[in-house]
């Protein structure tokens, strides 16, 4: 009954495994900051790495595989949010989620995610790229496909919103270490 329609072989590019092993942790952490959970973060990183695989040689020649992977991650994240985004997320119920966890470290993470949830998707992406992935404004602009001015604007607005986020101010002034 079953009809074989194709057999193909995809060779693993040189240096791809070393990159995945070396950078997967950092990429997953960025994914976690973008999406707020590890399952989606893994999905995001796998999608980006799969997209990078076929053009790996070219990316290596340009010495830019990580920039490309991060670009795919951000674009994929923005597309996901385009589908899911329905306006500002109410944050009123988020603090209740801490009821069963007595560990300050977990509280800090939840405060951070709750703060990031206040941001529109593009502002969140700028925060992650600029302040976590330590990319320059021009690299961030290239990853997001916008101007440097737009990056500065998103960053300024994000910082303004985060100033009012409950719990984040304490973290920024010397809260719980991980």
């Amino acid at each position: 009954m079953d009809t074989l329609t194709g057999v193909e072989h995809l060779a693993e590019p040189d240096g791809f495994r070393a990159f995945v092993e070396a950078r997967s942790s950092a990429l997953l952490r960025s994914g976690w900051l973008l999406t707020g959970d590890w399952t989606s973060a893994e999905d995001l990183v796998q999608t980006a790495l799969a997209a990078a695989w076929p053009r790996w040689s070219s990316l290596r020649r340009q010495d830019a595989p990580e920039l490309y992977v991060r670009k795919i991650m951000v674009n994929t994240f923005l597309r996901w949010r385009q589908r899911r985004w329905t306006g500002e997320i109410a944050t009123g119920r988020l603090p209740e989620t801490q009821a069963y966890d007595v560990f300050a470290q977990v509280d800090a993470r939840q405060s951070l995610l709750a703060a990031l949830d206040r941001l529109p998707a593009r502002q969140r992406a700028v925060v992650v790229l600029r302040y976590f992935a330590d990319q320059t404004e021009s690299q961030t602009a290239a990853a997001m496909g916008c101007s440097v001015g737009a990056v500065k604007s998103h960053a300024a607005r994000a910082l303004a919103r985060l100033r009012d986020a409950p719990g984040l101010a304490e973290l920024m002034t010397g809260g719980v270490a991980s």
Partner: peptide
């Protein structure tokens, strides 16, 4: 300060992405 909080608070992932997982997505 924000960069410091992001680096300090973001946890390590519970598991890594593997090349085999990526290959699976690709095919």
């Amino acid at each position: 300060q924000l960069a410091d909080v992001l680096h300090r608070t973001t946890p390590e992932p519970p598991r890594q992405v593997t090349v085999e997982q990526v290959a699976y997505r690709l095919v």
